[in-house]
């Protein structure tokens, strides 16, 4: 390109400086809530919400220690384990459902295929909270809302809808050439064998994405969990616990511990999210290369 006159160069430099200043401000705005909560999770002077300065003056580890040792009112370790166990079951069931539905829709011709897809689309349009009350009554009628059966109810709640959430996975399976399947049939493979030996291995990045996404579900949701668990504190999931800590009666003593808990939940979830993004991008670059 031809050499530019000096004035153009200056304008360009000024623009560059303005742009970078702007980006720095943007970055600060986006980071402040996180920096703030990390700072306050180490706050030493008081445990309530109110703090006379934006950043605390004294720092301590007590909030983290208290979160794990003071388990009489809020049993955070237990909540963590509850959520972890529920997530594992949820993730196994949802992933299987999504894979089964996606394969059937992407690879097999059957009469009810289109009606099923339309039905799923309609279901997805209803606000999920609308049927929440009914699901609670239904689970109650099945006796799943009492005592140690509550975790089962939660697993059902979080994974029952997976059969309607096939879109991303099905879209991905559609990109796998059908010729691969046909080659396998000619070699005498059954549908089940093509499913497990050809489709599933090719879907690996998408499966990882699906596994982690459904694993994260129970960590994020607090609405369904709150309605099903109600006051049974020993079955709280992390999100209900964190929510509780900010309620009137607890916030005075628990705000800084809430910050600590939020940091502890956010770190693994963010890492998992970054992993999903990597696999998602890998998946988007195509199932079969070359």
């Amino acid at each position: 390109m031809a050499k530019k006159p000096a004035s153009v160069k200056t304008t360009k430099m000024v623009t560059d400086i303005v742009v970078h200043l702007f980006l720095v401000i943007v970055a600060i705005v986006w980071l402040i809530p996180f920096v703030w909560i990390i700072a306050h999770s180490f706050r030493g002077e008081s445990t309530g919400m109110f703090c006379s300065t934006f950043f605390p003056k004294e720092y301590t580890l007590d909030n983290y220690i208290g979160l794990f040792t003071d388990i009489k009112t809020m049993n955070f370790p237990r909540m963590f384990m509850n959520t972890f166990i529920i997530s594992i079951f949820c993730c196994l069931i949802s992933t299987f459902f999504v894979l089964a539905v996606s394969y059937s829709l992407s690879r097999v011709k059957w009469t009810m295929r289109r009606p099923y897809m339309n039905m799923a689309m309609i279901i997805n349009l209803f606000p999920g909270f609308m049927s929440m009350v009914a699901i609670y009554f239904l689970l109650k009628a099945m006796g799943l809302t009492e005592g140690d059966r509550i975790p089962i109810a939660l697993v059902i709640c979080f994974s029952a809808g997976a059969g309607a959430g096939f879109h991303v996975m099905k879209g991905y399976m559609d990109t796998i050439p059908k010729a691969l399947d046909e080659a396998a049939y000619i070699d005498g493979a059954t549908r089940w064998q093509t499913f497990t030996k050809i489709t599933l291995p090719l879907c690996k990045p998408m499966i990882v994405y699906q596994v982690i996404t459904s694993f994260m579900g129970p960590w994020m949701d607090f609405i369904f969990a709150k309605i099903i668990v109600r006051a049974e504190a020993q079955y709280y999931t992390v999100s209900i616990g964190l929510w509780k800590m900010l309620e009137m009666e607890y916030i005075g003593g628990w705000f800084t511990r809430f910050c600590a808990g939020a940091v502890l939940v956010a770190i693994p979830i963010s890492i998992l999210f970054m992993i999903t993004q990597r696999f998602y991008q890998e998946a988007m670059s195509g199932a079969v290369k070359g």
Binding site: F97, A160, G161, F195
Partner: peptide, 19 residues
């Protein structure tokens, strides 16, 4: 493959919705 997901969808999504 469709039976389990569909059953769950029918029981825990469709029945509540109709209800």
């Amino acid at each position: 493959l469709m039976a389990p997901p569909f059953m769950m969808l029918a029981i825990f999504t469709m029945i509540p919705l109709v209800y």
